[in-house]
């Protein structure tokens, strides 16, 4: 496998310029885009789907669609990353809807004393896992909005475009999502290292 030219991975070359080059048959530009976007898309898909194989499938499908539309891409009309996240999000939504519904927050049992002692030794990985478990309890749209805003660190206008909703709706979803997460995790706040002030 050829590695992309390091100068292309550099953020100096915009994603859109690389994609236009891909539209003209530039394989090196395509590899550079994979290097830039592949891991980010995979992280997001893995968080939403909680399944490596399914995450791989949707990321692969998203990028295949990207190569297909590359010849028609017009610079300045949309961000390439936003376009990819939009497609990825929709593919994840389709898969999630095909699965059984997520567990309601109320159904999560309070941690037992035994569990609390384990939680006390939590490493950062454990914190990440606890958050992932709590995220899985959120309604699908809230989870998507929280992950995009607070973990992928995208801006609200980009999230609005990805989720096809208004910026106000994004703010509302993330606020409700964070409140729900806090409610699910508040019992472990000391172990998890977050404050409720």
């Amino acid at each position: 496998m050829l590695q992309p030219d390091p100068s292309l991975i550099d953020d100096q070359v915009p994603d859109a310029a690389l994609l236009v080059a891909v539209g003209n048959g530039d394989a090196q530009a395509a590899r550079a885009l994979v290097q830039r976007l592949g891991p980010r898309l995979f992280h997001h898909a893995a968080r939403l789907l909680s399944d490596r194989t399914e995450a791989e499938d949707v990321v692969q499908e998203t990028l295949l669609r990207l190569w297909k539309i590359a010849p028609e891409w017009r610079q300045g009309e949309a961000k390439v990353s936003t376009w990819c996240f939009t497609v990825l999000n929709n593919l994840c939504t389709d898969r999630l809807r095909a699965k059984k519904p997520t567990v309601a927050i109320d159904a999560i049992a309070e941690p037992t004393s035994e569990l609390r002692s384990v939680v006390a030794q939590m490493t950062e990985i454990d914190r990440a896992n606890a958050l992932a478990a709590a995220l899985d309890t959120l309604p699908e749209r809230q989870k998507q909005a929280v992950v995009l805003r607070h973990i992928e660190e995208l801006q609200n206008p980009d999230i609005a475009q990805i989720m096809d909703i208004s910026v106000e709706a994004v703010e509302s979803l993330t606020a409700r999502g964070k409140r729900a997460l806090a409610a699910a995790l508040i019992g472990q706040k000391d172990e998890l290292g977050f404050s409720d002030d």
């Binding site: 968080r47 950062e124 990985i125 914190r127 990440a128 896992n129 606890a130 958050l131 992932a132 607070h150 973990i151 660190e153 606020a175 964070k178 409140r179 997460l181 806090a182 995790l185 508040i186 706040k189 998890l192 290292g193 977050f194 404050s195 409720d196 002030d197």
Partner: peptide, 14 residues
């Protein structure tokens, strides 16, 4: 709302 940032940070790092 509680500051969940340490958890988000952990999620990004892991």
């Amino acid at each position: 709302t509680p500051d969940l940032e340490p958890l988000f940070e952990a999620a990004r790092a892991n």
